[in-house]
Every structure is written in C-alpha cells, then in structure tokens.
C-alpha cells in the first residue's frame, strides 16, 4: 500500500504525520504540490498511490489538486466535497442546519446596505467573517451601528469580490474559550479548550490550548458535525453559549494539532495516519477487485 501526502510547507504537523506513517510501517511519500504538473487525462505516477492525504496550506491548491486526483479515481483524504463544505463557512452553516446540528444564527447579504440590515436582524454585537479564511483573519466584531457601517463600507470598498459576501453571525458570549474536538474516522479522539483574553480564540492569534474531557454531548455533536460535511478527518470548533448551550461554529478539513498532542495525551498524528492507511487499504482492495472483474469480463468477451 502506498500513500502520497501533498503539501506546500512541511510544518511540524506534516513531519509528525510522516513520522507516524513510518512508525506504523506505511509507505507515505511527501509530494510538494508547488512542483507538480498535473495532466487531468493521464494520472501517470499517481497510479502508484492507493490514497492521497492532502496537507496543502493553500486552499486553492487543495481544491484543484484534489479535484484532479479524484478525477483519476484516487481516494483523497479528505474528499473534495468535504473540503468544499468545511472550507466555506456558508457551506458549513447550510450543512449543519440540514443535519440539525446546533450552530450560531447567521445572515448573508451581498452589499454593505443589506449587510447592515443583516446585522440589525441579529442585534449588536455581531460578527462578520470572510466565508473562506482561516486563523481568525479578517474576523471582526461589530459592537454598534457606527462600527458596523465602517466595517461594512471598508469591506465593500476595499475587499476583493470574495470579500463581498457579507457573512454575519450572531455574537456568542463565550466564557473566554472555545472548544475543539478532533474527529478521525467518525470518532472523536481528543478535545481541547482554546482560551484567550481576546474574543478571538484561534491559537494562531495567541490563544492557549488545554486538554479537556470529551463529554457525551461533545462526542455526539462532533460526530454529527463531521458526518454532516462528509469529512474523514476534521477539527470541529464549538462555542459554549450561555443561553443556547453548545453550538458548532465551524469545521477544519486540514487541522493543525502540534499544540494539542501533549496537553491531551493523544497521539493525533498516529490516529490520522492509521485512519488514512485503513482508507487506502480499503480503496486498494476495491481497485484490485475491479481489476479482477475487468479481466474476467475481458476473458469471457474474447
């Protein structure tokens, strides 16, 4: 069995994954997506792989490469549809609503004027986020009408076309932290709380991570959220709302975990590697059966 790991940067997580694959005896080849030329009509050397785990930092590169690889018939982790859902906050919101997973209320508008109406429907404060973005970038809290008008006008005037989706979320008065659950193969394996004095609690913005107990409610919600997106592997972020209880805020399809292993005592990289290997093995068996069936068909036909 062979697995490729596509990447743009070999960060600590990618090194951990390569080490984990090596530790469990799986042949995993790192492939720098920036140096790769794809021929959508010919999979060439990609035919050697039974699965590809995507670890590209660039969402654009991820979507394009996984689209081509799935076109070859290669099983990708995560699948394209899951990446498309997790990487777009509006798509995530819709998937969670359709799966009856509790999530913060959202309004979507197409310009600053209707954006202001959206904010006022939700009430102040409200939060505006880019639908595609990570690490807390360009997330802004609008505490009053003055702030809302200023942010919405700046977004409309200075933002790219993709920034002109006005995705506005109710502000959840969380207790100085959010919760992240790591889900691998449909199973929650670890939970952390990300705490910060700032209202944005991304570790990329300075929040600190601490392992917490995986309660039944956290398990249930994270399983249902991951299932709603079709992700094999996901980090599910939840907010503790004083009035509504736990709400699923978003999912990450290519999670970072370097700061979560020591505090949870769970070797997340090894869980991911083992699950990727299981998927590759299943896919390899399916491909072998298909090839055998094709040979039998050809033998009967001739």
């Amino acid at each position: 069995m062979r697995i490729a790991m596509t990447y743009t940067r070999l960060r600590t997580e990618e090194r951990m994954l390569l080490d984990a694959f090596e530790n469990i005896g799986v042949d995993a080849t790192p492939v720098d997506i920036r140096k790769t030329v794809f021929d959508p009509m010919d999979q060439g050397e990609w035919s050697a792989y039974d699965a590809v785990i995507d670890r590209s930092l660039s969402l654009t590169n991820t979507l394009n490469s996984v689209r081509i690889l799935e076109g070859y018939g290669i099983r990708c982790i995560n699948p394209l549809s899951a990446i498309e859902t997790c990487s777009d906050k509006l798509a995530t919101t819709i998937a969670l609503i359709n799966a009856d997973v509790p999530t913060p209320r959202v309004r979507v508008a197409t310009n600053a004027q209707s954006g202001l109406q959206a904010v006022e429907q939700l009430g102040y404060p409200a939060v505006i986020k880019p639908t595609v973005g990570s690490w807390g970038r360009l997330v802004a809290r609008m505490n009053d009408q003055d702030a809302a008008e200023a942010i919405l006008e700046h977004r409309e005037t200075l933002g790219s076309a993709s920034q002109n989706v006005f995705y506005i979320q109710e502000h959840i008065d969380k207790p100085g932290r959010d919760i992240r659950i790591f889900v691998v193969g449909g199973q929650p394996i670890a939970a952390i709380a990300r705490s910060s004095a700032h209202w944005v609690t991304n570790t990329a913005r300075g929040a600190t991570a601490q392992g917490i107990e995986l309660t039944d409610e956290l398990r249930d919600l994270s399983i249902r959220a991951a299932m709603a997106t079709g992700a094999d592997i996901a980090a599910v972020d939840l907010l503790e709302c004083p009035s509504q209880g736990l709400l699923v805020n978003e999912l990450n399809h290519s999670m970072e975990f370097r700061n979560s292993i020591e505090t949870t005592g769970v070797n997340i990289a090894e869980h991911v590697a083992r699950h990727a290997a299981e998927i590759a093995e299943t896919h390899m068996a399916t491909r072998t059966q298909s090839s055998a069936a094709q040979l039998v068909h050809e033998a009967i036909s001739t």
Partner: peptide, 11 residues
C-alpha cells in the same frame, strides 16, 4: 526565505 502567508492559507 519562506513565502509570506497568503489569503487562502489555513487549516
């Protein structure tokens, strides 16, 4: 020098 973080980078 490592490339600067781009708009579509993330997890």
């Amino acid at each position: 020098l490592a490339p600067e973080v781009e708009e579509d980078w993330g997890e």
